[in-house]
């Protein structure tokens, strides 16, 4: 569903690292469950896009010591309202709220489009 991004202050407690990065490889795609189709003109039809594992090249680290500039890290795009492809870039909030995945998970409903950099920096400044 195309619902607004989560309020960033609800997401930040789970964030372990914030990087500016770019997707360089799509490593794995989980099987996509059938997406319901609404009537003509319908929007906000339920259904989530399948999980992906992607490689991310880190250009900048805004928060955390999970990684460093220049690293290429593997991260999980969870089931959600967006899908990544090679070249997608922007701020990635990384965490592992369930603490059971080997790779960090991208947090925020729309991945690199969730929050502008200034919004993230303001949230980090608030602690």
């Amino acid at each position: 569903m195309a619902i607004p991004p989560d309020p960033i202050d609800e997401v930040m407690p789970d964030v372990r690292c914030v990087v500016i990065g770019e997707v360089t490889h799509i490593l794995e795609k989980w099987k996509q469950a059938p997406l319901p189709k609404g009537e003509d003109g319908a929007a906000d039809v339920p259904g989530e896009l399948a999980k992906q594992k992607v490689r991310l090249k880190v250009a900048e680290v805004l928060f955390g010591d999970l990684t460093a500039v220049g690293d290429e890290i593997e991260v999980i795009k969870p089931d959600g309202d967006y899908v990544l492809r090679v070249g997608n870039h922007g701020p990635f909030l990384l965490g592992d709220p369930m603490a059971r995945l080997s790779s960090p998970t991208i947090l925020g409903r729309y991945g690199p489009d969730s929050y502008r950099r200034d919004v993230i920096e303001a949230a980090l400044a608030r602690g």
């Binding site: 195309a2 003109g41 967006y82 492809r85 489009d113």
Partner: peptide, 22 residues
């Protein structure tokens, strides 16, 4: 105006426009 459904979601990331949205 409505955007395309999620089956074409990869069109949208980084555009500032969102799939399956009005």
């Amino acid at each position: 105006a409505g955007t395309h459904g999620k089956d074409r979601a990869e069109l949208y990331t980084n555009t500032g426009v969102y799939a399956n949205h009005s």
